[in-house]
């Protein structure tokens, strides 16, 4: 059997989601952002929300997210995505509003906005990409950086006495009454990607049902910032990130 017998629409198993356009992505090879973009595109298409979705793009590597997914986007100032999402959702309550933020955006400069939006129980979904580093600006230490992890601003490793402990912001958010879903996932294997897709779908359903704030933390890699190959970065993440940021539901009501 040759390839032409297999290539036909009825045999299609997997393809790039239609909502993701053909623009060439600026992410480094092997970056987790691309996978999460794909998952979001698939879920929005699956739920038929293409015309009703408004995404809030962050500052960070994902600042150009609006170039890649054909939905409505709004660009927020650094860390202010939950505040902007609050405004958009309150003015247009029939829309599905989600923010897409990295750890420097959500857990550092945007801590106040994130916590207060979650505490108010705004009906938004927050997709939180945690790679433990500031990727865009050159791999500086972030609040989520692991202890003893080497970054460009902690060349001897993060010293917890001097620089503080890794911030488990999802655990903090899970305590708030306004939060209906706080879950941690990853995208390093096909099974993990499928779980992430289920969780993002649940978060979007919660946002539409008005149940409160949903937060999906995707523990991801920054192979360029960690100075590893994409495959080695995945192994390093499993070995070092997962013990500190364990995969699973913290809250799901």
């Amino acid at each position: 059997m040759n390839a032409n017998d297999i290539i036909s629409p009825e045999n299609l198993v997997y393809a790039k989601p239609g909502l993701m356009n053909d623009n060439y992505m600026h992410y480094c090879p092997g970056c987790s952002h691309g996978v999460v973009h794909k998952v979001i595109a698939e879920v929005i298409k699956e739920m038929g929300l293409q015309e009703k979705t408004i995404g809030i793009a962050p500052v960070g590597c994902a600042v150009f997210a609006y170039n890649y997914l054909d939905i409505d986007w709004q660009e927020a100032a650094h860390g202010r995505a939950p505040a902007l999402a609050t405004a958009v959702k309150r003015l247009l309550p029939d829309r599905m509003v989600f923010t897409y933020q990295g750890d420097g955006d959500l857990a550092a400069i945007g801590t106040a906005e994130t916590i207060h939006a979650a505490n108010r129980g705004e009906n938004i979904a927050i997709i939180f990409i945690n790679n433990g580093i500031y990727g865009m600006t050159g791999g500086q230490m972030a609040p989520t950086t692991l202890s003893n992890m080497v970054t460009s601003t902690s060349p001897d490793g993060r010293n917890v006495q001097m620089m503080g402990n890794p911030l488990k912001i999802l655990d903090m958010l899970a305590l708030l009454d306004g939060v209906c879903l706080a879950t941690r996932t990853s995208v390093h294997t096909a099974a993990a990607v499928k779980r992430t897709r289920r969780m993002i779908r649940l978060a979007f359903e919660n946002a539409m049902a008005g149940k409160g704030t949903s937060i999906v933390e995707v523990v991801s890699t920054c192979n360029a910032g960690w100075k590893m190959t994409p495959a080695a970065a995945n192994d390093w993440m499993v070995e070092n990130m997962f013990p500190v940021y364990p995969i699973g539901d913290l809250k799901n009501i």
Binding site: I6, I7, N11, Y14, K16, V193
Partner: peptide, 24 residues
């Protein structure tokens, strides 16, 4: 090419969305 079982694992993990998988 003869080994492919069309499981689409490659497609799921591809960050660029450059993989299309067929199975028969």
């Amino acid at each position: 090419p003869d080994e492919c079982i069309g499981c689409a694992n490659c497609g799921f993990v591809c960050p660029e969305g450059c993989i299309t998988v067929y199975r028969k």
